[in-house]
Amino acid sequence: MSDRMKIFLLLLPAMFIIVVLFFGGLAIGAMRSFNYMPVIGLTQPNFDAYISVFTDREFYLSFALTFHIAFTSTVISSVLAIGAALLLRRSFIGRGLVNFLFQINLTVPHLVGAIGMLYLFSQSGSFARLAAEFNLIASPADFPALVFDPYAIGIILQYVWKEIPFIGVIVLANMQSIGEDYESVARSLGASKWQTFRYVLLPLIFPGVLSASVMVFAFTFGAYEIPAILGANFPAALPVLAYRKYTDVDLAARPEAIAMAIVIALLSAVMIYFYVRYSRRRIRG
């Protein structure tokens, strides 16, 4: 058997999953979004679902909210993760324990974290009760709305809590593989600590930060369960809106839901493209 054939056969299972299941599903979804469903007699494809999506004011509100959630979570997580990695790469007493604690919530599912967030930060949660107990507020209901709130603070808190160690672990590994010699060179050439970070370390770790933050952005932009549990009813995040339409009793809303899901994927890809381009130019000058 030739090497080419061997490679082809080895790749076949993975290619089957990607081509048949992913692209197959996408193709069927796309057909439905164009109102092409021969099974129920729809044989004339059209753009009605997309027109409906783009003329719905709620879609734009949801898009703005979802972008706010994804962008804010990604930026805060990335900045804090870089800071944490800078601290954790130093040697200090108890570093192993701190490192362990830093990474421990990687193993906690998002859903569990969201429920924890609900217990802690809702107006009937532990912090609200504690604040009322210590007379910081008159009653738990006076606690600031951090979940189900219009600014999605609870959702962002949950993502930041979960994504800091994710980005941090990648950045820390990146920093450790780079070592400190580049920074030593910069210092001896006259760079201050800040200049060394800005002009040397940051551009060096940038590919790692970029990959991790792109993953976080894509995930937070397209994730359903956290906005569903911690988000306000209106406006809802785009994936929540799409799911509501998909599960609508009116089957005619289904193409609109799928169109929305496809729009979410496309918007996510476009935003990631511009994010990568812009940040590469800013960081590497």
């Binding site: 030593s184 210092r187 001896s188």
Partner: peptide, 9 residues
């Protein structure tokens, strides 16, 4: 500080 020593490595 290293940046003020006038030493380059």
């Amino acid at each position: 500080k290293p940046e003020n020593r006038g030493v380059v490595m």
